[in-house]
Amino acid sequence: MSDVHAHAHGGELPPEPERATLDGRNRILGFWMFMAGESVLFGSLFATFLALRHSVMGGPEPKELFSLPLVALATFILLTSSLTSVMAVQAMHRHDNRRIQLWLAVTVALGLAFLILEIYEFVHYVHEGHTFSTSAFSSAFYTLVGFHGAHVLFGIVWISLIIGQLMVKGLNVITAPKVYIVSLYWHFVDLVWVFIFTVVYLMGMMG
């Protein structure tokens, strides 16, 4: 590649630093492709859940299990965290490294809060007799919602590592695409949650 990764000229970062290099643009496009694949993946998990959601086989019904207030709180937390990740990207476009780290840290904290609520929720369900092996419905439920939770966990670790990199290396044309991409990821995870909230919890309450 002869158009080498652009070095900051006189310390000036370009306006959209994540797109300043070919590598940055490649990573962003590649990540959109990855999310397309992940959409099909989650789509398949949703299809499985929809196919099996009535096969409760004598276990607890969704109506009995789900607590909408708790789930609504978790939703609010996750949606807010998506907003804070937007703030981080805006800070990046202002080249404000400190603010990026701050907003990303808030995002991580909110993500952690979401995850803790979800773990608490699952533990409660297990005590109610709704385990992974209870029925086809329960297997589908834990797989779909669990996969999402695993994605949240992965995102939390990922964002934390990026905060670390920003602290050590600063904001440059190498770290900028990372910030942008992790923010895309976080939006994706949030969007999947909106569908889970609707299909699993809301539709579950309606029967």
Partner: peptide, 29 residues
């Protein structure tokens, strides 16, 4: 490939972790 991956994961869960996606006695299909 994602649908294949999901299918394999579901099968793996049935075989190794006690899931019921394909067990008709537990409501699977």
């Amino acid at each position: 490939f994602p649908p294949l991956t999901v299918g394999l994961v579901l099968l793996m869960f049935d075989r190794l972790f006690g899931a019921n996606f394909f067990d008709v006695t537990q409501g699977g299909n």
